[in-house]
């Protein structure tokens, strides 16, 4: 029975755990960061690899969703071109708060090696970014580390962050 597993010497002798709203909400949010499949270029292959058999992203509670309405996290994996820029903004606007963005790979961070007329020089010109992930292309381990850092970040911030107005960029 469950009651025998309760340690009555702790928590004031009650089978109750006390916490704050912030902590319990952030615990839930940080352990079920559902990512939007935003594969744009080469990094998308590494993003798929991190979801596949060897690297197994599900361990972190990160499941890829195809719809922005169901996603908390947008992993911008690959080069964002000027033609595509309006769509990334629109999909970002469609995601529900709270939402986070990981910019994966050099192209998404700064334009990377594609210093050309057709490439947006960093997705942070279009949407606000929480975490920049260097590499071309970053290994799946790197992406997993980035998600772990993001979880840490989520746990630190206040739970009703969504009430605050979000920056334009």
């Amino acid at each position: 029975m469950a009651q025998h597993q309760v340690n009555y010497t702790q928590s004031g002798g009650l089978p109750v755990a006390l916490t704050t709203v912030d902590k319990i909400l952030n615990w839930g949010r940080s352990n079920s960061v559902w990512a939007l499949t935003y594969g744009l270029a080469c990094c998308a292959i590494e993003m798929m690899a991190s979801g596949a058999s060897r690297y197994d992203f599900d361990r972190f509670g990160t499941i890829f969703r195809a719809s922005p309405r169901q996603a908390d996290l947008m992993i911008v994996a690959g080069t964002l071109t000027k033609k595509h820029a309006e769509f990334i903004r629109r999909l970002y606007d469609q995601m529900t708060e709270p939402k986070w963005v990981i910019s994966m790979g050099s192209c998404a961070n700064t334009g990377g090696m594609f210093n050309t007329y057709a490439t947006v020089q960093g997705v942070d010109r279009v949407i606000p970014v929480d975490l920049y992930l260097p590499g071309c292309a970053p290994r799946p381990e790197t992406l997993q580390y980035a998600v772990m850092l993001l979880q840490q970040k989520i746990r630190r911030e206040s739970a009703n962050k969504s009430q605050k107005p979000k920056r334009l960029v």
């Binding site: 000027k82 210093n115 007329y117 010109r125």
Partner: peptide
């Protein structure tokens, strides 16, 4: 046409 684009291209998005 320059590699890094003209003014229109640089402010397009």
């Amino acid at each position: 046409y320059p590699l890094e684009g003209d003014e229109f291209a640089q402010w397009y998005e």
